[in-house]
Computed example of a mutant assay.
Amino acid sequence: MVHTKAQSPLKDNNSTGLDLNSINTENVDIVRQLLNQETIIRMTLVKNVHTLMKDMLSLQEKLAEAEVEISSLKKSTDSELTDLKNEVMLLKLENVNVNSSMDNLKSALRLSETEQLKLSAAVSSLELLRVNLTNHDHDKATKFAFTAGVTSSNKTWRSGVMVFDKVIFSIRSGYNPSTGVFTAPIEGNYVFYVSAVEFSNRYLGVFIDKNGKHQVQLIGDSSAQFQTGTNMVILSLNRGYAVWVNYKSGSGYYSEFESIPVTTFSGFLI
Protein backbone atom coordinates (compact mmCIF):
# COMPACT_ATOMS: atom_id res chain seq x y z
CA MET A 1 0.00 0.00 0.00
CA VAL A 2 1.22 3.47 -0.96
CA HIS A 3 0.75 6.23 1.54
CA THR A 4 -0.04 9.72 0.03
CA LYS A 5 -1.06 13.00 1.40
CA ALA A 6 -3.82 14.91 -0.33
CA GLN A 7 -5.29 18.38 0.17
CA SER A 8 -9.04 18.62 -0.15
CA PRO A 9 -10.19 21.26 -2.55
CA LEU A 10 -12.95 22.02 -0.11
CA LYS A 11 -10.46 23.25 2.44
CA ASP A 12 -8.88 26.71 2.56
CA ASN A 13 -5.10 27.32 2.58
CA ASN A 14 -4.82 26.66 6.33
CA SER A 15 -6.28 23.18 6.15
CA THR A 16 -3.99 20.16 6.67
CA GLY A 17 -3.79 16.96 4.68
CA LEU A 18 -5.51 13.77 5.86
CA ASP A 19 -3.68 10.70 6.85
CA LEU A 20 -4.96 8.14 4.47
CA ASN A 21 -3.68 5.42 6.76
CA SER A 22 -6.04 6.59 9.44
CA ILE A 23 -8.99 6.77 7.13
CA ASN A 24 -10.93 3.68 6.65
CA THR A 25 -12.52 2.54 3.50
CA GLU A 26 -15.84 4.13 4.37
CA ASN A 27 -14.27 7.52 4.82
CA VAL A 28 -12.42 7.19 1.52
CA ASP A 29 -15.69 6.61 -0.25
CA ILE A 30 -17.13 9.66 1.36
CA VAL A 31 -14.17 11.75 0.30
CA ARG A 32 -14.40 10.42 -3.23
CA GLN A 33 -18.06 11.24 -3.33
CA LEU A 34 -17.32 14.74 -2.13
CA LEU A 35 -14.60 15.16 -4.75
CA ASN A 36 -16.92 13.91 -7.44
CA GLN A 37 -19.61 16.28 -6.27
CA GLU A 38 -17.10 19.14 -6.24
CA THR A 39 -16.03 18.27 -9.77
CA ILE A 40 -19.63 18.09 -10.90
CA ILE A 41 -20.35 21.41 -9.24
CA ARG A 42 -17.27 22.97 -10.89
CA MET A 43 -18.25 21.63 -14.28
CA THR A 44 -21.84 22.80 -13.80
CA LEU A 45 -20.60 26.19 -12.75
CA VAL A 46 -18.28 26.40 -15.76
CA LYS A 47 -21.11 25.30 -18.02
CA ASN A 48 -23.44 27.84 -16.46
CA VAL A 49 -20.78 30.52 -16.82
CA HIS A 50 -20.36 29.67 -20.48
CA THR A 51 -24.13 29.72 -20.91
CA LEU A 52 -24.35 33.06 -19.13
CA MET A 53 -21.58 34.45 -21.30
CA LYS A 54 -23.36 33.24 -24.41
CA ASP A 55 -26.58 34.77 -23.11
CA MET A 56 -24.77 38.02 -22.35
CA LEU A 57 -23.25 38.05 -25.83
CA SER A 58 -26.69 37.34 -27.30
CA LEU A 59 -28.21 40.06 -25.18
CA GLN A 60 -25.46 42.45 -26.24
CA GLU A 61 -26.12 41.61 -29.88
CA LYS A 62 -29.84 42.05 -29.39
CA LEU A 63 -29.20 45.28 -27.51
CA ALA A 64 -27.02 46.51 -30.36
CA GLU A 65 -29.70 45.51 -32.85
CA ALA A 66 -32.31 47.24 -30.70
CA GLU A 67 -30.15 50.35 -30.54
CA VAL A 68 -29.76 50.27 -34.32
CA GLU A 69 -33.47 49.76 -34.71
CA ILE A 70 -34.21 52.53 -32.24
CA SER A 71 -31.80 54.79 -34.07
CA SER A 72 -33.47 53.88 -37.36
CA LEU A 73 -36.89 54.45 -35.85
CA LYS A 74 -35.71 57.79 -34.49
CA LYS A 75 -34.41 58.81 -37.89
CA SER A 76 -37.62 57.63 -39.53
CA THR A 77 -39.68 59.41 -36.88
CA ASP A 78 -37.63 62.57 -37.32
CA SER A 79 -38.10 62.33 -41.09
CA GLU A 80 -41.84 61.72 -40.75
CA LEU A 81 -42.07 64.58 -38.24
CA THR A 82 -40.24 66.84 -40.69
CA ASP A 83 -42.60 65.72 -43.46
CA LEU A 84 -45.57 66.39 -41.21
CA LYS A 85 -44.24 69.85 -40.39
CA ASN A 86 -43.76 70.52 -44.10
CA GLU A 87 -47.29 69.30 -44.79
CA VAL A 88 -48.60 71.56 -42.03
CA MET A 89 -46.76 74.48 -43.60
CA LEU A 90 -48.19 73.59 -47.01
CA LEU A 91 -51.67 73.33 -45.51
CA LYS A 92 -51.23 76.73 -43.91
CA LEU A 93 -50.14 78.17 -47.25
CA GLU A 94 -53.07 76.47 -48.96
CA ASN A 95 -55.37 77.86 -46.29
CA VAL A 96 -54.00 81.34 -46.97
CA ASN A 97 -54.54 80.76 -50.69
CA VAL A 98 -58.07 79.48 -50.03
CA ASN A 99 -58.84 82.55 -47.92
CA SER A 100 -57.43 84.76 -50.66
CA SER A 101 -59.51 82.89 -53.24
CA MET A 102 -62.59 83.29 -51.06
CA ASP A 103 -61.95 87.03 -50.81
CA ASN A 104 -61.51 87.17 -54.59
CA LEU A 105 -64.72 85.20 -55.06
CA LYS A 106 -66.58 87.53 -52.71
CA SER A 107 -65.24 90.54 -54.61
CA ALA A 108 -66.18 88.90 -57.90
CA LEU A 109 -69.63 88.12 -56.51
CA ARG A 110 -70.14 91.72 -55.43
CA LEU A 111 -68.92 92.88 -58.84
CA SER A 112 -71.24 90.35 -60.48
CA GLU A 113 -74.17 91.65 -58.43
CA THR A 114 -73.30 95.20 -59.46
CA GLU A 115 -73.03 94.16 -63.10
CA GLN A 116 -76.31 92.27 -62.77
CA LEU A 117 -77.99 95.41 -61.44
CA LYS A 118 -76.52 97.39 -64.33
CA LEU A 119 -77.66 94.71 -66.74
CA SER A 120 -81.14 94.73 -65.22
CA ALA A 121 -81.23 98.51 -65.54
CA ALA A 122 -80.08 98.24 -69.16
CA VAL A 123 -82.72 95.59 -69.86
CA SER A 124 -85.36 97.81 -68.26
CA SER A 125 -84.18 100.74 -70.38
CA LEU A 126 -84.29 98.60 -73.51
CA GLU A 127 -87.75 97.35 -72.61
CA LEU A 128 -88.91 100.93 -72.05
CA LEU A 129 -87.35 101.91 -75.39
CA ARG A 130 -89.11 98.97 -77.05
CA VAL A 131 -92.43 100.02 -75.53
CA ASN A 132 -91.86 103.62 -76.61
CA LEU A 133 -90.94 102.51 -80.12
CA THR A 134 -93.99 100.26 -80.22
CA ASN A 135 -96.15 103.13 -79.03
CA HIS A 136 -94.44 105.42 -81.51
CA ASP A 137 -95.08 102.96 -84.31
CA HIS A 138 -98.64 102.62 -83.09
CA ASP A 139 -98.98 106.40 -82.96
CA LYS A 140 -97.57 106.68 -86.47
CA ALA A 141 -100.01 104.02 -87.61
CA THR A 142 -102.92 105.96 -86.11
CA LYS A 143 -101.90 109.51 -87.11
CA PHE A 144 -103.88 111.17 -89.87
CA ALA A 145 -103.35 114.79 -91.01
CA PHE A 146 -103.51 116.91 -94.13
CA THR A 147 -103.36 120.45 -95.45
CA ALA A 148 -104.51 121.35 -98.98
CA GLY A 149 -104.98 124.58 -100.95
CA VAL A 150 -106.65 125.80 -104.13
CA THR A 151 -104.39 126.62 -107.08
CA SER A 152 -106.68 128.81 -109.19
CA SER A 153 -109.05 131.62 -108.32
CA ASN A 154 -112.77 131.48 -109.21
CA LYS A 155 -114.80 134.65 -109.78
CA THR A 156 -118.12 132.87 -110.45
CA TRP A 157 -118.26 130.10 -107.85
CA ARG A 158 -121.80 129.93 -106.47
CA SER A 159 -122.45 126.30 -105.42
CA GLY A 160 -121.05 122.88 -104.55
CA VAL A 161 -117.89 121.69 -102.84
CA MET A 162 -114.77 123.82 -102.80
CA VAL A 163 -112.00 121.59 -104.15
CA PHE A 164 -108.59 122.14 -102.61
CA ASP A 165 -106.62 120.50 -105.39
CA LYS A 166 -103.03 121.02 -104.09
CA VAL A 167 -101.99 118.75 -101.18
CA ILE A 168 -99.38 120.60 -99.14
CA PHE A 169 -99.01 118.01 -96.36
CA SER A 170 -100.45 114.55 -95.79
CA ILE A 171 -100.03 111.65 -93.34
CA ARG A 172 -102.35 108.81 -94.33
CA SER A 173 -105.01 111.50 -94.25
CA GLY A 174 -107.94 110.20 -96.25
CA TYR A 175 -108.28 113.51 -98.10
CA ASN A 176 -109.06 113.35 -101.84
CA PRO A 177 -107.70 116.39 -103.78
CA SER A 178 -109.86 115.49 -106.80
CA THR A 179 -113.17 115.80 -104.94
CA GLY A 180 -112.21 118.03 -101.97
CA VAL A 181 -113.73 115.46 -99.58
CA PHE A 182 -112.03 114.04 -96.46
CA THR A 183 -113.13 110.49 -95.50
CA ALA A 184 -112.31 109.35 -91.95
CA PRO A 185 -109.97 106.30 -92.09
CA ILE A 186 -110.74 105.32 -88.48
CA GLU A 187 -113.14 106.34 -85.77
CA GLY A 188 -112.00 109.26 -83.64
CA ASN A 189 -112.04 112.97 -82.93
CA TYR A 190 -110.74 115.23 -85.69
CA VAL A 191 -109.86 118.92 -85.90
CA PHE A 192 -110.66 120.85 -89.11
CA TYR A 193 -109.58 124.37 -90.01
CA VAL A 194 -110.52 126.45 -93.08
CA SER A 195 -109.10 129.78 -94.23
CA ALA A 196 -110.84 131.28 -97.33
CA VAL A 197 -110.13 134.61 -99.07
CA GLU A 198 -112.97 136.33 -101.02
CA PHE A 199 -112.21 137.60 -104.50
CA SER A 200 -112.12 141.42 -104.73
CA ASN A 201 -115.29 142.56 -102.89
CA ARG A 202 -117.34 139.61 -104.12
CA TYR A 203 -117.88 138.40 -100.57
CA LEU A 204 -117.59 134.79 -99.48
CA GLY A 205 -119.34 132.48 -97.05
CA VAL A 206 -118.73 128.70 -96.66
CA PHE A 207 -119.77 125.83 -94.36
CA ILE A 208 -117.75 122.97 -92.95
CA ASP A 209 -120.07 119.99 -93.46
CA LYS A 210 -120.11 116.52 -91.96
CA ASN A 211 -121.98 113.97 -94.05
CA GLY A 212 -123.88 116.86 -95.73
CA LYS A 213 -124.82 118.61 -92.46
CA HIS A 214 -123.50 122.10 -91.72
CA GLN A 215 -121.27 122.19 -88.62
CA VAL A 216 -119.69 125.69 -88.64
CA GLN A 217 -119.35 128.55 -91.12
CA LEU A 218 -116.91 131.30 -92.00
CA ILE A 219 -117.43 134.60 -93.77
CA GLY A 220 -115.22 137.01 -95.71
CA ASP A 221 -117.61 139.99 -95.90
CA SER A 222 -116.41 143.61 -96.01
CA SER A 223 -116.20 146.62 -98.24
CA ALA A 224 -112.43 146.02 -98.47
CA GLN A 225 -111.00 143.66 -101.03
CA PHE A 226 -109.71 140.13 -100.38
CA GLN A 227 -111.18 139.69 -96.93
CA THR A 228 -110.39 136.39 -95.15
CA GLY A 229 -112.81 134.18 -93.27
CA THR A 230 -111.53 131.48 -90.90
CA ASN A 231 -112.98 128.90 -88.55
CA MET A 232 -112.03 125.71 -86.77
CA VAL A 233 -114.12 122.80 -85.51
CA ILE A 234 -113.62 119.48 -83.67
CA LEU A 235 -115.79 116.67 -84.98
CA SER A 236 -116.38 113.12 -83.77
CA LEU A 237 -116.32 110.84 -86.80
CA ASN A 238 -116.98 107.20 -87.36
CA ARG A 239 -114.92 105.39 -89.93
CA GLY A 240 -116.16 106.37 -93.42
CA TYR A 241 -117.72 109.68 -92.35
CA ALA A 242 -117.06 112.53 -94.81
CA VAL A 243 -116.15 116.19 -94.24
CA TRP A 244 -115.86 118.94 -96.87
CA VAL A 245 -116.13 122.72 -97.42
CA ASN A 246 -119.50 123.70 -98.94
CA TYR A 247 -120.78 126.89 -100.57
CA LYS A 248 -122.94 129.31 -98.54
CA SER A 249 -122.78 132.76 -100.18
CA GLY A 250 -120.75 135.12 -102.40
CA SER A 251 -119.49 134.80 -105.89
CA GLY A 252 -115.86 133.81 -105.86
CA TYR A 253 -112.65 133.05 -103.94
CA TYR A 254 -109.02 133.92 -104.32
CA SER A 255 -106.50 131.11 -104.67
CA GLU A 256 -102.77 131.96 -104.71
CA PHE A 257 -100.51 134.88 -104.13
CA GLU A 258 -97.13 134.50 -105.78
CA SER A 259 -97.90 130.77 -106.38
CA ILE A 260 -98.49 130.13 -102.66
CA PRO A 261 -102.02 129.08 -101.61
CA VAL A 262 -103.99 131.52 -99.43
CA THR A 263 -107.28 129.56 -99.31
CA THR A 264 -106.62 126.30 -97.42
CA PHE A 265 -108.33 123.33 -95.76
CA SER A 266 -106.62 121.35 -92.93
CA GLY A 267 -107.56 118.43 -90.71
CA PHE A 268 -105.98 115.94 -88.28
CA LEU A 269 -106.86 113.21 -85.78
CA ILE A 270 -106.46 113.99 -82.08
Rank of each mutant, 00 (worst) to 15 (best):
residue 151 T to I: 02
residue 206 V to P: 03
residue 239 R to P: 12
residue 151 T to H: 05
residue 125 S to D: 15
residue 113 E to M: 09
residue 242 A to E: 14
residue 134 T to F: 04
residue 184 A to T: 06
residue 217 Q to P: 02
residue 155 K to W: 09
residue 140 K to M: 15
residue 129 L to H: 03
residue 151 T to F: 03
residue 153 S to Y: 11
residue 182 F to W: 07
residue 194 V to N: 03
residue 226 F to T: 03
residue 207 F to D: 02
residue 211 N to A: 07
residue 107 S to K: 15
residue 233 V to A: 00
residue 232 M to D: 09
residue 149 G to D: 00
residue 210 K to L: 05
residue 213 K to L: 14
residue 127 E to H: 14
residue 218 L to P: 00
residue 146 F to H: 04
residue 133 L to F: 05
residue 168 I to A: 06
residue 157 W to I: 04
residue 136 H to F: 15
residue 194 V to P: 05
residue 109 L to K: 08
residue 231 N to F: 01
residue 242 A to D: 10
residue 117 L to D: 13
residue 193 Y to D: 04
residue 157 W to K: 01
residue 160 G to F: 00
residue 155 K to T: 11
residue 231 N to I: 01
residue 191 V to K: 06
residue 107 S to C: 11
residue 179 T to Q: 12
residue 231 N to K: 07
residue 140 K to T: 15
residue 122 A to P: 08
residue 189 N to D: 10
residue 126 L to Y: 12
residue 227 Q to A: 07
residue 239 R to C: 11
residue 142 T to C: 07
residue 132 N to M: 13
residue 145 A to G: 05
residue 145 A to K: 00
residue 119 L to K: 07
residue 123 V to P: 12
residue 108 A to G: 13
residue 162 M to H: 02
residue 207 F to L: 06
residue 174 G to V: 07
residue 170 S to G: 10
residue 144 F to V: 01
residue 150 V to W: 01
residue 186 I to L: 01
residue 200 S to Q: 10
residue 190 Y to E: 00
residue 224 A to F: 06
residue 214 H to F: 10
residue 243 V to N: 01
residue 179 T to V: 10
residue 228 T to V: 09
residue 194 V to T: 07
residue 232 M to R: 12
residue 214 H to A: 12
residue 195 S to G: 05
residue 231 N to Y: 03
residue 191 V to D: 00
residue 235 L to N: 00
residue 154 N to T: 12
residue 128 L to N: 14
residue 147 T to W: 12
residue 223 S to R: 11
residue 206 V to I: 13
residue 164 F to L: 01
residue 233 V to W: 06
